[in-house]
Design a protein around this nucleic acid. Structure first.
Lengths: 204, 204, 204, 204
DNA sequence: GGGTAATCGAGACGGTACGTCTCGTCTTGCT
DNA sequence: AGCAAGACGAGACGTACCGTCTCGATTACCC
């Protein structure tokens, strides 16, 4: 799971000597990160020292598992993002709305927060950027599959740019939540309003 | 211009006593910020100490003008964002493409960088958030005006949601540049591809 | 030894957890202070930053041991004052001259310098003042013992005011070196001249 | 009076052009220094900024008169030291006691404080050291004259070391007040006790 | 059951930046 | 020209974290 956990290697694993890492510590640490983020603290408040103190853990125990703060936060992202929503599959419109609505859970809210906190690092750190894409890509893929299925079923135009449409569906919500734009649409209508607007140009 | 510059007060300004603030210092400081950002340094490299050293200025001279690093960066945003592009006004499509293309200048690239660096602070600091919206709103308004004009001329559907459409036009570009999504569209075709996709659902 | 060193507590010392403080750092830091003072630098030149730089030590390492600059300097005083001179014990006169002559070592010269540098702080800071007296009192006591022994042996008047005589023996040297009074006595005759003058009134 | 005041030059005074310096400002500034010192503030609290603020005066007005803080404090010393005590001249003992008692006035107490504050600078700054001796020397001379007169009248030993005796009389009081030694003598008996001790060895 | 080795919490280490303060100098406009 | 006000470059203050490095104590496995 973690970037550094050696135990994920393939094959007939030579058991490492010495005391094994506490699986509980992993959990406690990530919980502490989420707790600190959830408290509405500033991004800077999620310092390694604070996390260690909160988790009742030594700093070394953290650095043994993650090479730096960003990697830790990335893993926190993973931990916080819940399972993908069950897609009813009745129609493209319904599925897309469900996908966008999924961003309104407290879980997903925190996720946005963390991503925002990581942006400075994402901008310059290629390694981190790759890690994030590895995580986010499967989630984008779900939307793309919905779109591709829509093309197959004839609900969507056959020449639809799937990549672009995915971004058109996800980007507005992210900007809205981070930059707090006032879109004059009630939160609970946002998803369908956006989907309808996109579909208007995407329908067959 | 700056958050703290007292000279913006209304009315018949009582001249402040004492030596007036050096207008040149304002400039030198902002230049130093932009220089540091431009050097591809990390966000963290834009420390107040570095800015002061680069500008050949005491730290106090900076803190006299801006209450903290974020406010300084916000002002750097202002200084770096160039004038709005001249809109040909021949068609909605043409104007929108021009507006989006404007984000490809080196200037605008740096702007994205700074915004990304500021995201953690924007998330929590309401004051800062307000400052940023004050800055960005006029720029969003330009797009909205193009859209409204399009409705008047009949180029666009009369019931078009102007707010939402504006976000649909701007958000994808921002996410693309920050999160470096690979959209499989050459950079120089991105603007027209996006505009066409949006217009397909927006046209009358 | 230091004001903050917890190891001075009484009883069966529970070993402190965590990495123990480097005893070497204590030494290196005090050496750096003495070096800076010895270079004839101004008192103000002995800044914590300068000490840290000179000692090749982080500022925190200093602040972990001493609460502020004054306490650090006090400890430097302690470190610099050498052992008490061996007293021959042949006569009061001989012993007193030896004690006063001990102030002419480079060591003691630096000591005077440091005390002078600390005077402003000694004046107002009761805590510091107490610390200094705790350090200086044993040294004054040596002189007093010589005087008391002199009374016992009949060398000195039985009603001699020991306290006052101690000050009469030590104060002139200190003022001479700090205020650089010109006493028209060669430095190497000062001790015996003073002792003789005092003894003239103190002898039995 | 001040080191920099040009108006004290002898003879045919060329009238300075422009607005003459406010004589009142000199006074106000020195008063402010004394007030700050008197408030038991720390030595460091007597900053130029604090003095200027207290005196309701610009900092430049101070720096126009004194080259630096030390010179200002030296002048404050002068201003605070009152006139020499009237010497009855009936006996050496009586006169010496009067001279030492003069150090118990609140005025003289403040004087000690200032001297203590200046010690670090006195140690290294030759110019300042000279300024201080120019000021203190006449006061030491008074004591020496009393001693010399005592020799003439036969009250004191003809081979008395006048210089040394003067220091023996003045130094203990200064150390007592600065380092707050506890001499086990009531303050109001200190003068005569000391004088008697010194005279015991000095009498003819 | 004793040895070996990596773990644990705790916290010190050398650094860097923070935001505040004072220094001594300079630059306004008013008197 | 002097004045009060206050901005200026410089740099120390004491604090907070960074990421690394010891400590003594605690598990596990392996002989």
């Amino acid at each position: 799971m973690n970037a550094m956990n050696s135990s994920t290697a393939a094959g007939q694993e030579r058991k490492a000597p010495g005391r094994p890492r506490s699986a509980q510590a992993d959990e406690t640490i990530l919980d502490a990160v989420l707790a600190l983020l959830g408290e509405g603290q500033s991004a800077a408040a999620v310092s390694i020292e604070a996390v260690a103190a909160r988790a009742g853990v030594g700093k070394a125990t953290i650095y043994r598992r993650w090479p730096n703060k960003e990697a830790l936060l990335i893993d926190a992202v993973r931990a916080m993002k819940g399972p993908l929503p069950e897609l009813a599959g009745r129609s493209v419109r319904e599925d897309l709305i469900a996908l966008i609505r999924a961003n309104r859970t407290p879980r997903a809210q925190r996720h946005s927060k963390v991503i925002a906190c990581l942006m400075p690092e994402l901008l310059r750190d290629d390694e981190l950027s790759r890690m994030y894409r590895d995580f986010i890509e499967p989630r984008r893929e779900v939307t793309r599959q919905v779109l591709r299925r829509g093309i197959e079923t004839g609900e969507l135009r056959p020449d639809l740019d799937v990549e672009l449409t995915q971004v058109m569906l996800s980007a507005p919500g992210m900007m809205k939540s981070i930059l707090r734009f006032d879109l004059a649409i009630p939160d609970d209508e946002f998803a369908e309003t956006l989907v309808d607007a996109v579909l208007r140009g995407a329908s067959a």
